[in-house]
Design a protein around this nucleic acid. Structure first.
Lengths: 227, 227
DNA sequence: GCAAAAGTGTTGGGCCTACACCCATGC
DNA sequence: GCATGGGTGTAGGCCCAACACTTTTGC
């Protein structure tokens, strides 16, 4: 058999910051084709390398980021998605916490890897816009049946951080009281005896954290929440 | 770059028959490795071939079956899942209707491709048991938010066919009255002025069919049903 | 007439939605 | 003291689960 198909992995990595909303990492391509365009980080899989290891390695190399949550998204395989030769993209979906978000923002090689708000993405190389669309659909669906806040927020956060995260992702208003009842009803959030630092305006809220055990249970089994 | 990874597609195809329950197609391997073992149908992707076309072609060649519903399931890529060389499996999830089910059952080359009830599967080649597990998890989840009965049942079916399908898949009893209220409430089922042929015992039920337009709408957008 | 499967309604409880005012802080 | 955002409760409606007897057919 004379099959000639290359195998690459790509990752859409989401991060979140209160004021900048939901963002994802893009890298600037150094080589042709699409030289200078923004693209999803990723690259070819090594012969002896597990797919997930390949994703983590590429992310480390291209962006310096370590992922806390990673799952397979979809495999894109149209014969002409890469103009040079046939390349399969096994794409992954990742989440990083707020700290990582800020570190990358501050990194010196930010010329090459950068956060972009999902509301204002640049033109993307290859079929990467399509991949991003699938990833955004996934994260929106996922937030309704899996607790993904832990990966995106700081370890301690105010309730309105969580609320803003949800309403940003779902792109609509949320009733604060009902949302709090629902989330607290799931039982994996703990209120701390600590106030958020005041940010100059308004009343500081309590800080919350996830109860890891209960959280992991929901992460595995899922739940259902109508927001 | 000297990457050497082959790309294959595999398909878990589910079919259903009232008395035999939910089944999937397996093929008997003709060559080493795992010669004589049962395996999921599939094979290598041609250089210019779309992934989904490859799945359909392989299914046609190996089983003679044409699929009415096909979607990507997951990509399996551990370096040693095939003992000869590295082979990636992009696996798909398919559904065929009852007629196809029966044709394959009757086919003469049934030595090579056969239905097996998901309750009594033989030992499988490669990592195919793992792939099957993922597929069964998927179909169980899917039945709760997408109407997949159309693909699995005859065009006309009695309500208890649908009920048995659900309770077989979910592997538990269903309350008939509540189930009927819920399904009818979705509005894509139409009752016909026709009775099912008596099967020798009990009262024959009315026949139903899907309203294709309304069904397709739900297929795209999904719904939510707690059973 | 009996065995087998189809058909059919109601009620109580829980959950969800909608909704508006007071509180704590910084300036 | 005012601007800003945080925190809190209830009532009505809807949906869901639980539950058993009657009807139609074949034999």
């Amino acid at each position: 058999m004379n099959q000639n198909i290359k195998v690459a992995v790509d990752a859409i990595v989401f991060g979140y910051h209160k004021t900048e909303g939901v963002s994802l990492i893009l890298v600037k391509r150094k080589y042709s084709p699409f030289k200078g365009s923004w693209a999803i980080p990723g690259g070819f899989v090594l012969n002896e390398e597990d797919l997930e290891s390949a994703v983590r390695r590429e992310l480390r190399e291209e962006t310096g980021v370590e992922i806390n949550f990673l799952e397979q998204l979809y495999t894109f395989g149209k014969p002409n998605r890469d103009p040079r030769e046939r390349v399969l993209s096994i794409s992954y979906f990742g989440l990083v916490n707020s700290q990582t978000f800020q570190e990358l923002k501050a990194a010196t090689d930010a010329e090459q890897a950068q956060w972009f708000s999902i509301k204002s993405l640049p033109q993307l190389a290859f079929d990467h816009q399509e991949i991003v669309n699938v990833a955004i659909t996934r994260i929106r669906a996922k937030i309704k049946y899996q607790p993904i806040g832990f990966e995106l927020l700081d370890p301690k956060f105010s309730f309105s951080d969580l609320e803003i995260l949800y309403s940003t992702l779902l792109d609509r208003k949320i009733d604060r009281r009902n949302f709090k009842k629902k989330i607290m009803g799931l039982g994996f959030l703990e209120e701390l005896n600590e106030k958020a630092p005041s940010n100059g305006a308004g009343r500081p809220g309590s800080l919350f954290q996830f109860n890891v055990d209960k959280y992991r249970r929901y992460e595995k089994n899922g739940f259902h929440i109508e927001i």
